[in-house]
Nucleic acid binder design. Structure first.
Lengths: 163, 163
DNA sequence: CGCCATTATATGGGGTGCAATGGAATCGCG
DNA sequence: CGCGATTCCATTGCACCCCATATAATGGCG
């Protein structure tokens, strides 16, 4: 099958292999992400939140007050995604939003008492998720770090250019 | 840092570490997926398609005719996602949809000539993407396979239960 | 002090992603 | 053959996700 000299047919074969979904890293990331979000749903639905909302809360449970921009930086999301999401959290009494007094452009997002309480109720979520994934810890760490490196490197060079 | 006997404080510390975004595999997958979709945009926009639409076309370029169910199986998407997506592809003249004569429940999705032509114009996309990712090939393969194993194992046991 | 560039969110629109539901076609058992 | 169960897709409703653009506040320069 494999030929030393790559004629047109061999090159076409190579291209076809690159195009197969099963061979694509990007599709593997895409479908894993969709699947993971589905796995979170039954864990988070009893708490009345979605996975992206849960991610926002993970940040706030650590810092209690963040601006929209800081949340966006931490999560890799823009204001077009975060603003309506935060409004829903606010409508559900989980966070409060107010303009920063010293800079009226910024919006401070902070936990309400209900949002603080959610932290306790959500304490088991990470462990339950780890159980669901059923990955040996060192494999999970390796996979996580590989993805983090990839994301970090890609964020460094957002525009296409030669190296 | 690490203590043999885990008191309440140590356990709380442990939980806090589990909750940090930087430590979470799931968030690493989530943000990598969002970022990858953003990276595809400038490559696919000139072709007039989105990344999920491109994934559908990758399947059709290999098989030329698939049912909605087969596409959903291959991509891990359901009819609620695929039906409107396929309608948009149809509206753009890239695919045609028709009921299968032998089983009127099924909808056959097939490429139009324009959809076939897109294959040539999109031929450089996988290579451009590989360049963007800047991962050593063996690392990309390793990462891809780890994600594929994860996805495969998770699809096997969709409902939560003890092992 | 006034004006312009910059910064921080908000808004609008298009395109997913998925659960829940509905409806038509087919299957299969009696 | 008849009829309920099943299969397949479409529809609905809600929640992202992001780009482009708008708007308001701030900062800086003359």
């Amino acid at each position: 099958m494999a030929e030393k000299k790559k004629g047109g047919a061999a090159r076409a074969e190579e291209l076809a292999e690159l195009c197969r979904l099963d061979n694509q890293l990007c599709f593997a990331v895409y479908s894993a992400s969709n699947l993971i979000t589905r796995l979170y749903r039954p864990l988070l639905e009893p708490l009345g939140i979605t996975y992206p909302q849960y991610l926002v809360l993970l940040v706030l449970w650590e810092h209690s007050t963040r601006t929209v921009g800081e949340l966006g930086e931490a999560l890799g999301l823009d204001s077009g995604t975060l603003t309506p999401l935060l409004k829903r959290l606010e409508a559900n009494g989980i966070v409060a939003r107010k303009r920063a007094p010293e800079d009226e452009r910024r919006v401070l997002v902070e936990l309400t008492p209900a949002g603080q309480k959610l932290r306790t109720r959500a304490a088991s979520v990470p462990i339950e998720m780890i159980c669901k994934l059923r990955l040996p810890p060192e494999q999970a760490v390796e996979l996580r770090d590989a993805l983090k490196r990839l994301t970090r490197d890609l964020r460094a060079l957002p525009e296409g250019n030669e190296g």
